[in-house]
Design a protein around this nucleic acid. Structure first.
Lengths: 207, 207
DNA sequence: CGATACCGGATACTGAGACTATCCATGTGA
DNA sequence: TCACATGGATAGTCTCAGTATCCGGTATCG
């Protein structure tokens, strides 16, 4: 397959494909001569994944690359790699100042209640604390029941995710599906939650 | 309060505040003379909300403005406005081509099972269909149990949200808290889900 | 065999988004 | 009083995600 055919099959313009090659999101094709290369199904597949993560999942090119590097890398342990990969996702805590002790404790209490084991240096722990801090800064008193509902929901979702992915033995496939499920799962959940809110809200309007 | 004090109290640089004023995210201060204005608590509050939605929630300035316009607007019915506001959130289906019939049916089946009433022209319905289409395009066979888990979780979360917000009678406060809860709730849930995945995944490693 | 369209790769340019910086005529505070 | 701050307008910057151009080299059609 030449680049123009890759473009046709994927729907992405040739210059964009060149861009992904430059940025290292897409592996180079097999060179058949000094300035000619051949692409195959794997390129098409990867290209579709890139578009899904960026367009639907809303990831930046840099985040996408970091994620794909995890998928491509060698794995000392499947579960370890899976964990590290998912912690990478979108964990751009761009807030300069680290979270406050108080919010970290709040985060640990919340995760502790679900029985989760969270590493103290996990970027997601900081991220969680940051989100909790933001709620507080906006004057929302962080209702415990509400938070627990969210944590419980997250626990059930994670179980469903792991169950779905559990049957797979091929590491590459497992990692790819985990990444897809996690990133697109955010979008899925966001849409579903809004639809549910609207529906339930309207239902309460005239009881 | 002058603009420099507003800047100090909020932590946002003066030029950024001027930018939000220009863009209409922040209402103008009360003019005390042709080129002098006074700002108050409401400006500080709004400023914090803007930063939370953009930095933590990841919304663009344009999306944030659209949302805030909903919060500020007059309300014919609380629940109606709430619904419309939340449907606006982040619903940037930038994909040019509309979703396919098949995916819309899939979406309707999923929401129908939860007993939700979804308007056919709701942008979130299209968004949901788009996400489902993306899963299919990536070769994930859309396991029904997995999808149902997500829909059920969304239903419970929405109930927790509505419960939390239900006690409020002040429309402005209700709308603001709903917006905060919905947008930051996405971030909260994303962090929690990743922590849960990592924890459960590690737990399965050595049973 | 030759014209011409296409290729891979490097480099340069573009447009949107979110700020920053400058400017200026006016106010304000020590 | 008078250096400094203010509000508002305009212009400049930086990053990101592509696009466009250019190049020597290849494939292929007539």
């Amino acid at each position: 397959m030449r680049i123009s055919e890759l473009s046709e099959h994927s729907g992405s313009p040739v210059p964009s494909i060149k861009y992904y090659l430059r940025e290292g999101l897409l592996h180079r094709g097999e060179r058949t001569s000094p300035n000619q290369a051949r692409y195959d199904r794997s390129h098409l597949r990867r290209l579709r994944l890139i578009r899904a993560l960026t367009e639907v999942g809303g990831l930046s090119i840099a985040d996408t690359r970091a994620l794909l590097e995890g998928v491509d890398g060698e794995s000392p342990s499947h579960h370890d790699l899976l964990g590290r990969t998912l912690m990478t996702v979108d964990a751009d805590v761009r807030d300069s100042s680290g979270p406050q002790q108080r919010d970290l404790e709040l985060a640990d209490t919340l995760t502790g209640k679900q029985g989760w084991h969270v590493y103290p240096d996990s970027p997601m722990r900081d991220r969680l604390a940051q989100v909790l801090a933001t709620f507080r800064a906006l004057g929302m008193e962080l209702d415990q029941d509400w938070l627990d509902s969210y944590a419980a929901a997250a626990d059930r979702l994670a179980q469903a995710d792991l169950e779905y992915v559990g049957g797979l033995t091929d590491v590459d496939e497992l990692l790819e599906k985990a990444v897809i499920g996690t990133v697109l799962g955010d979008s899925l959940l966001a849409a579903l939650r809004r639809l549910a809110q609207a529906s339930i809200s309207r239902g309460q309007q005239e009881p």
